[in-house]
């Protein structure tokens, strides 16, 4: 049986009359690195906070490491790493003190890894947390979350305040952690190229539900834009499976499908006498096609 480190079933969460999550079904097995995409306000942070037991679901279930999120015990928490959108630090602590404070919560703490990361990320151990920039706070938050080499790492827009160089360092660290294929990572972001590099899977949250959860390579093979010409208007929308977008301009029909197969152009040619030009889509295009 597949072991799901992250699992929700029909997860709902309302704030007053506003329902943000409307039945989220998501199951992420061990070893998957999943990028979570969604427009602003789609509910990414709410989902992550429900998963971590920081918010109580209004309905449905959420579990981490096989344990109900709202009832996570210390044993599960010690196997978990989390980086919040706003990293919480003690302003009066120096970086070194913040590391020591965090390390005290974990029985397995890789002090060498942390020292190395602080150095590579140019975070002086003697600097006071109160004067760190937004980017430095985020870097420190990530280092602190990696220190115990968690089995499950959840990051809420970890790259939002990072400059391109720091983002690359961040990706490298995540890839190093994931290298053994045993770590499970979920990170939300707006930077699609980070997902394309680091993730094995993609989930899109839209309108409070998971609109898509797929491996990245399969997705890029399946979602294509077709430019269709000729056929004298005989082509109908039913001829193309999995239509996401359809637009006509003069003689040219432009279709985005999420059920492309290599034999489709030939089939359409034979059935409707049309010529089909296939365009590959990157993740940003794919994301837009689903909205």
């Amino acid at each position: 049986m597949t072991e799901f480190l992250i699992e929700t079933q029909g997860l709902r969460k309302s704030f007053g009359k506003v329902e943000v999550l409307r039945g989220v079904d998501l199951a992420i097995p061990r070893g998957e690195v999943t990028g979570l995409l969604g427009t602003n306000g789609a509910g990414k942070s709410t989902l992550i906070r429900c998963l971590l037991g920081l918010l109580r679901p209004t309905g449905g279930t959420a579990s981490l490491l096989g344990c109900t999120s709202w009832e996570l015990a210390d044993a599960e928490k010690s196997r978990l790493g989390y980086v919040a959108q706003e990293v919480q630090l003690f302003a009066s602590f120096r970086v070194r003190d913040m590391v020591g404070y965090t390390a005290a919560f974990y029985s397995r703490w890789d002090a060498n890894l942390v020292r190395e990361l602080l150095e590579r990320w140019e975070l002086p151990e003697s600097k006071s947390c109160g004067v760190l920039s937004a980017g430095e706070r985020q870097k420190l938050g990530i280092v602190l979350a990696l220190g115990h080499r968690p089995e499950l790492l959840i990051l809420d827009e970890p790259a939002a305040s990072l400059d391109p160089q720091a983002r690359r360092l961040f990706l490298e660290s995540v890839l190093q952690l994931a290298a053994d294929g045993e770590r499970t990572i979920l990170f939300s972001t707006h930077i699609t190229s980070d997902i394309e590099r680091a993730a094995s899977h993609l989930a899109i949250l839209q309108g409070g539900v998971v609109r898509l959860h797929s491996d990245l390579d399969g997705l890029k093979d399946r979602v294509k834009r077709l430019r269709i010409t000729g056929g004298g208007g005989r082509l109908k929308a039913e001829d193309v499976p999995g239509v996401l977008k359809w637009s006509e301009q003069g003689e040219v029909v432009q279709v985005t499908t999420d059920r492309y197969s290599p034999d489709l152009p030939q089939r359409l040619h034979e059935q409707r006498g049309v010529e089909v030009l296939v365009e590959d889509l990157n993740l940003e295009d794919v994301f837009l096609a689903f909205h």
Partner: peptide
């Protein structure tokens, strides 16, 4: 896989695939 994954900053599973 590890060497190339680290240099390219790409998920190691992608390279092994």
């Amino acid at each position: 896989v590890r060497q190339l994954g680290a240099v390219l900053s790409v998920n190691f599973m992608t390279i092994s695939k």
